[in-house]
């Protein structure tokens, strides 16, 4: 991967802003507009939060390794952890976006469960790949096409 930049941080919530700033700097250099940079920050925030909450199950249980690389066509972000692998396909979309007719009461009742973060990632990135590679951690690959730049 060309021009790869890597940041390794402890899996703690207070590191999320650092992760976002790292990605925002790379995305700005790649020429993305402010809205897209916000989307990339949000996706990295949600992915990192999922790693802490679901892969590690708690704060401080392992590291998060985040990298980005710029090619002619893509801005590729990879997040790795050494926690428990999970199947994102088993996470249902949040009830608010399934198209079901729900009252606001039903909606607020059902939203106690997670799934929003994954929903954001799937909707804001052009391509998302989850793989299970126990040797190098569990990578989440998120790709933004450079054609989406202003």
């Amino acid at each position: 991967m060309a021009n790869e930049q890597v940041l390794t941080v402890p899996g703690r919530y207070k590191e999320i802003k650092r992760i976002c700033e790292f990605i925002a700097a790379g995305a700005a250099q790649a020429g993305f507009d402010d809205d897209t940079i916000f989307h990339l920050e949000l996706c990295c925030d949600e992915a990192s939060t999922n790693i802490i909450e679901h892969a590690y199950g708690e704060e401080g249980a392992g590291n998060i390794v985040i990298s980005y690389a710029l090619s002619d066509d893509d801005f590729t972000i990879v997040l790795r952890d050494n926690g428990t692998a999970f199947n994102p396909d088993a996470v249902p979309p949040p009830p608010s976006v399934t198209g079901d007719e729900l009252t606001s009461d039903e909606l607020t009742d059902q939203l106690r469960i997670g799934g929003l973060g994954l929903h954001f990632i799937r909707n804001l990135m052009d391509e998302v790949r989850f793989t299970s590679d126990r040797l190098s951690g569990t990578p989440l690959i998120m790709i933004k096409r450079l054609g989406t730049r202003q």
Partner: peptide, 19 residues
């Protein structure tokens, strides 16, 4: 200037309690 799903969850919890 920035809010993630974690912030939304707090807003939803407040809404549920108020309703």
């Amino acid at each position: 200037d920035y809010i993630s799903s974690a912030g939304l969850r707090a807003m939803i919890a407040l809404l549920r309690e108020c309703k």
